[in-house]
Nucleic acid binder design. Structure first.
Lengths: 125, 125
DNA sequence: GCACGTGTATTAATGCAATAATACACATGA
DNA sequence: TCATGTGTATTATTGCATTAATACACGTGC
């Protein structure tokens, strides 16, 4: 069963997108594995204190992307074969790296300064 | 006169917040300097193709933070003494570094891997 | 069989960013 | 002086993302 204990939604973006990102990053990083079982939509909505439809929306998007498999009456299962995981990992890392580089460049930093700054705050988070 | 040619709003957050962030990062990075003149609210709204009230909202928030000075009849002026710039720079860099570190950690990367990834995409953006 | 938990679908309600319209106050320059 | 452009303020409206409420369909296990 996938754990959502480390999932802390904020108000910076829609909750359903945060759930989507949480699961995708979990799969990409290996914390969530192929054939893992997801909590039911209702159970997760109670756990997170949100509306069941919000969970439903996130799960249906995961289904559209082929990352989970759903059927009536039973909880959904993660569908993440190795090649899919690698592809997802590359996508996420590339997107993160690009946005991060853009951010630091916008701040007028050099690559060396950016790396140093990252190192300075690495242990803090 | 502050230039907004590099300002490219997207639909990831409210436009007024993007304007706010654009100006703050500009000040922090030195691209926008103390006593620089801002375009008028109406002129900027025409330039960006948005409603004057959206610009007004961003500018009033900048005024609340003490980063611009406004008076009737004349365009607003940047108020950014050196100590304020340094403070702003620290705030922005710290926030960016923390969120970046958290992001890479969430992806299961080590500091070395994160730095390498950043370097790999640095020139691309 | 059937109670229960599950996935799925539809519709309504809510909140808020963005827009819109308008009015007033002030400064500048012809 | 006065026309013009500026900042400021108020109120209403629109559109859409999000949440909410509800009903229906299906599978499991007693």
């Amino acid at each position: 069963m996938i754990s959502f204990v480390s999932f802390k939604p904020d108000n910076s973006s829609p909750i359903y997108l945060q759930i989507l990102a949480f699961v995708k990053r979990g799969i990409a990083s290996g914390k969530i594995k192929d054939s893992d079982e997801l909590p039911s939509r209702r159970a997760l909505s109670v756990l997170l204190g949100i509306n069941p439809n919000t969970v439903q929306r996130a799960f249906s998007m995961l289904e559209e992307e082929g990352l989970i498999s759903s059927s009536h009456g039973v909880t959904s299962i993660v569908t993440a074969p190795p090649e899919r995981v690698n592809k997802l990992k590359e996508e996420i890392l590339a997107a993160d790296a690009k946005s991060t580089a853009a951010l630091f460049k916008q701040n007028g930093l050099s690559l060396e300064q950016a790396a140093a700054l990252l190192a300075a705050y690495w242990e803090e988070v």
